[in-house]
Amino acid sequence: MEEIAITDAQLLPQAALLNAANFDEVFRLYSPRVFRFLLGALSDRDAAETLTQECFLKAHLAADGFRGESSLQTWLMKIAVNLLRDHLRSQRFRFWRRAQSSALDPAEVSDWLADRQSSPEAACMARDQVAGLWSAVARLPAKQRTVFVLRFIEDMELQEIAANTGMQLSTVKTHLYRATAKLREQLKGGL
């Protein structure tokens, strides 16, 4: 995992977010994870980029509200989770705009998949699997999708997911169980 190692020493103090000079540095350090989470949950590059920028704009404006009880990364992920929830909620009522013009095409990652597979057949099968899982994840309810992406894309521990989403640990477990059960069920026919 090409994760940018963020140590406690790198965590900037709350005032740093207010400083426009440090803002780029904060963005460089923390945006990949936020963007990846949003991209995994939305499968829409444009929407993920917009929400990532909005997440950091919100953080910049609300820097006074950051009390340092959690790490800056957790705080940013919390904002991202809330933005995702609001986005999905507003999207539900705009069903006529559901056709996503910038939805991520599995073909976009076909080169990467082809590099990892031993044969063209295996690469083709892998592409189908990814496409199937993509559409299955897109059909999950917002909370289940959030928990699933944080667990399997971001490799977060359940306790960490609870801290990032503000859910109880048992609620996280329930959502994760339901999400995986649904995906297993939906992939049963496809795989």
Partner: peptide, 15 residues
Amino acid sequence: RAIELFRGAIHHAAA
């Protein structure tokens, strides 16, 4: 396997 591929694809696309 599908989850593993999905994860890799998202990491690749996000980078």
